[in-house]
Amino acid sequence: MTRLLVLTDRAQVPAGRSLRDVLAAAADAGLRTVLLREVDLPDDERAKIADHARTAGLEVVAAHRPVPGCAGVHLPADAPLPAVATRWGRSCHHRAELAAAAAEGAWWATLSPYARTESKPGHGPPLPASAFAGAPLPVFALGGITPANAAAARSAGAYGVAVMGAVMRADDPASVVAALLREVHP
């Protein structure tokens, strides 16, 4: 399993660039897995983005609801399990949700917020580093992750990191992805 997940958010991509541009640059820099959010779009539009990401060499995990051809689905902490057997993870905000996700058979979870984040201003205080240690399943630290703190998240016990804003808003997404990969790989 990858140590770096990039979450999409086309609203954060700077003018003059598209989400497709960002995904292609991230893939060229070594990203292997993208978590396709864009949950406000109809499923056929999400499927087109997923198809493009796969042609760039990315494994795609869909947020909230399955998208045909995706490698899995990432669900909110309280969402029902997918009807079709697939790899799936949960979005968690405290240890009890991690334990529940592990008991249900989740393959992974995100745990947030790791740090203050520009993507969701005011989204809870950052979790203590101890929240990531000894998790019952692979956990990706999410929220405010940058190349400057990614290694610290791993040192705190996170299996990997999940990043949205630092990549989506970057002037040079490829250099941010490359820096993140250097920080999270053992």
Rank of each mutant, 00 (worst) to 15 (best):
L4F: 09
L4N: 06
L4R: 05
L5M: 08
L7R: 10
L7M: 05
T8R: 08
D9A: 11
A11H: 14
Q12L: 13
S18Q: 09
S18L: 08
D21T: 09
V22N: 06
V22E: 04
L23H: 01
A24F: 14
A24K: 14
A25I: 12
A25F: 15
A27D: 15
G30N: 11
G30H: 13
L31H: 14
T33V: 13
T33A: 06
T33D: 10
L35Q: 15
R37I: 02
R37Q: 05
V39D: 13
L41W: 06
L41T: 01
L41K: 06
L41D: 03
P42F: 05
I49Y: 09
H52R: 09
H52I: 06
T55C: 06
A56S: 15
A56R: 15
G57D: 10
L58Q: 11
V61Q: 12
V61M: 14
H64P: 01
V67C: 02
V67W: 00
P68N: 05
P68M: 11
P68V: 05
C70D: 08
C70Q: 04
A71H: 10
A71N: 04
G72Q: 01
V73C: 09
H74N: 12
H74A: 07
L75F: 00
P76F: 14
A77W: 02
D78L: 08
A79K: 03
P82A: 05
A83W: 10
A85P: 13
R87L: 13
W88P: 12
G89Q: 03
S91K: 03
H93V: 00
H93M: 01
E97Q: 14
L98V: 03
A99N: 15
A102Y: 11
A103F: 04
E104P: 02
G105C: 00
G105L: 03
W108L: 12
W108N: 01
A109G: 11
S112P: 10
S112G: 15
P113T: 13
P113E: 07
A115Y: 01
R116N: 14
R116T: 13
T117M: 12
K120Y: 00
G122V: 09
H123C: 03
G124A: 04
P125M: 08
P125Y: 03
P126L: 13
P126H: 11
P128M: 00
A129Q: 02
A129N: 04
S130W: 02
A131R: 07
A133R: 11
A133C: 04
A135Y: 07
A135I: 09
V139G: 14
F140Y: 10
F140E: 00
F140V: 00
A141P: 08
G143S: 02
G143L: 06
I145A: 11
T146H: 03
A150R: 04
A150H: 10
A152F: 08
A153S: 07
R154L: 14
R154S: 12
R154P: 09
S155H: 13
S155K: 14
S155N: 15
A156N: 07
A156S: 13
A156C: 03
A156M: 08
G157I: 01
Y159N: 02
G160Y: 01
V161Q: 12
V163Y: 07
V163I: 02
A166T: 05
A166V: 06
M168L: 02
A170T: 05
A170P: 09
D171S: 07
D172A: 10
A174S: 11
S175E: 14
S175V: 14
V177S: 06
A178I: 07
L181F: 11
R182K: 14
V184P: 07
H185T: 15
